[in-house]
């Protein structure tokens, strides 16, 4: 792992970009799983005989 204290401005910018992309990817995954659960759960609930 590169030492943040020694890295150049270009390296720092690239690292920041990677971190933001990773954070967005993880957030998207959480949202997708949540919505998938709601959609599938919703479909099961509506099929229940009341």
């Amino acid at each position: 792992m590169s030492d943040p204290a020694r890295e150049s401005e270009v390296e720092a910018k690239a690292r920041r970009g990677r971190n933001i992309a990773l954070a967005l990817g993880l957030a998207l995954f959480v949202i997708l799983v949540f919505v998938v659960t709601m959609v599938r759960l919703g479909a099961s609930v509506t099929k229940q005989p009341f």
């Binding site: 270009v10 390296e11 690239a14 690292r15 970009g17 990677r18 933001i20 992309a21």
Partner: peptide
């Protein structure tokens, strides 16, 4: 050695 950008991934 250019630092990896997210576009590279």
């Amino acid at each position: 050695k250019a630092p990896a950008r997210w576009q590279d991934f």
